[in-house]
Computed example of a mutant assay.
Amino acid sequence: MCTSESAGPAVEVRGLSKRFGRHLAVDDLTLTVAPGVVFGLIGPNGAGKTTTLRMLLDVIRPTAGVVRVLGQDPRRVGPALRRRIGYVPGDLRLDGRVTGRRLLAFYAGVSGGVRSGEADALAERLGVELDRPVRTLSKGNRQKLGLVQAFWHRPELLVLDEPTSGLDPLLQREFLALVREARDAGQTVLLSSHVLSELQQVADEIVVLAHGRVVAEGDVASLRLSTVRHVQVGLGDTSVEAVQAALAPIGTLREVDVREQGGAVRVSATADGEIDPLVKALARFRVLDLSAQEPDLEESVLRLYGQEGTGG
């Protein structure tokens, strides 16, 4: 059972930087993770997510800055702190002739505090066979073993770096259920992902990283990461000129392209913000088809990065 030994934030980072030669991977990062929440780190590949998580766990040392995890300095307390943490690395590598069960037994000796039957219960939920040699398992099944060893001792803090990599959609749903249960039990979850939909479902707070810096932070709703939509519409019984006139007053549209194609008027546009004005403008025509697609995460992050005016 999760028992917090520290008051205050679960994770606190101030002025954290990491430089690899001339490359600045993390740049003056400051963030605070409250206990008992799901905290999302999101951003495109190379944003600094994995480097940040590794510094929290003392896998690598920061170039500058202060790190506190569960009230302690991870550089000083070592294994005693890591036993209070469940960790899935972004580059999880499991191999060998031993079975999953034998491997987990080894990890149990490291983690401590694993309840009897916990491994089997989690393995059943995630659909992984514990009695097969690890080297015969698919990437997805190895990832499931990693999740079992992270969750099974019910740590105070879960640090999960791209944890659903290799999992099919049904297993991703089960993983999100595990995250919600951990939060409900008072555990803190620090979840790194480049999949926006994952964090939209479970995160209480999100920090968006780009080029090692925070470009946005807040709850999912306030960040408005998904208010941009790429819209494709087919309209009948009208003309290009009529459609252009109807769309002209809508200030939230950009990249508008209206043309006649295949006996219909085709509209392609990007709606930035409320989509209601566009829907009402189109309602006066006969709509043959309509699709509205959210941009991918990288596009959303780059848009935020540009809004912050820190680009380059």
Rank of each mutant, 00 (worst) to 15 (best):
A177M: 14
L178I: 06
L178T: 03
R180I: 02
E181M: 07
E181Q: 10
E181N: 06
E181C: 06
A182G: 04
A182H: 00
R183D: 06
D184M: 10
A185G: 06
G186A: 04
G186Q: 03
G186L: 05
G186Y: 01
Q187H: 09
T188L: 02
V189L: 07
V189M: 05
L191Y: 09
L191H: 08
S192N: 13
S192Y: 08
S192E: 05
S192V: 09
S193V: 05
V195S: 07
V195K: 07
V195P: 05
V195N: 08
L196C: 05
L196R: 01
S197A: 14
E198Y: 00
E198C: 01
Q201S: 08
Q201I: 06
V202G: 00
A203D: 02
A203Y: 03
D204G: 08
E205T: 14
E205R: 14
E205Q: 13
I206P: 01
V207S: 04
V207M: 10
L209R: 03
H211A: 14
V214H: 08
V214D: 04
V215D: 02
G218P: 07
G218H: 04
V220R: 05
A221I: 08
S222H: 04
S222F: 06
R224K: 14
R224G: 10
L225Q: 02
L225H: 04
S226L: 13
T227L: 15
T227A: 15
V231K: 03
V231W: 00
Q232T: 15
V233H: 04
V233Q: 01
E241T: 09
E241Q: 11
A242M: 10
V243D: 00
V243F: 02
Q244A: 14
A245I: 11
A246W: 00
A246L: 02
L247T: 05
L247C: 09
L247K: 02
L247Q: 08
A248V: 04
P249G: 05
P249A: 07
I250G: 02
I250M: 03
I250P: 00
I250K: 01
G251I: 06
T252W: 01
T252A: 06
T252I: 01
L253R: 01
R254K: 15
V256F: 10
V256D: 06
D257G: 13
V258M: 05
E260Q: 12
E260I: 11
Q261N: 15
Q261S: 10
Q261D: 15
G262W: 11
G263E: 05
G263A: 09
G263V: 04
A264D: 14
V265G: 06
V265H: 08
V265C: 09
R266T: 13
R266C: 12
R266N: 09
R266K: 14
V267W: 03
V267I: 11
S268A: 11
A269Y: 04
T270D: 13
A271Y: 04
A271M: 08
A271G: 14
A271V: 14
A271T: 09
D272F: 07
G273W: 00
E274M: 13
E274Y: 10
E274F: 11
E274I: 12
E274V: 09
I275Y: 08
P277Y: 11
L278D: 00
L278N: 00
L278E: 03
V279Y: 07
K280G: 13
A281E: 01
A281W: 00
L282I: 04
A283Q: 12
A283T: 10
F285V: 03
F285Q: 02
V287K: 02
D289T: 15
S291F: 15
S291W: 11
A292P: 10
Q293V: 15
Q293N: 12
E294K: 12
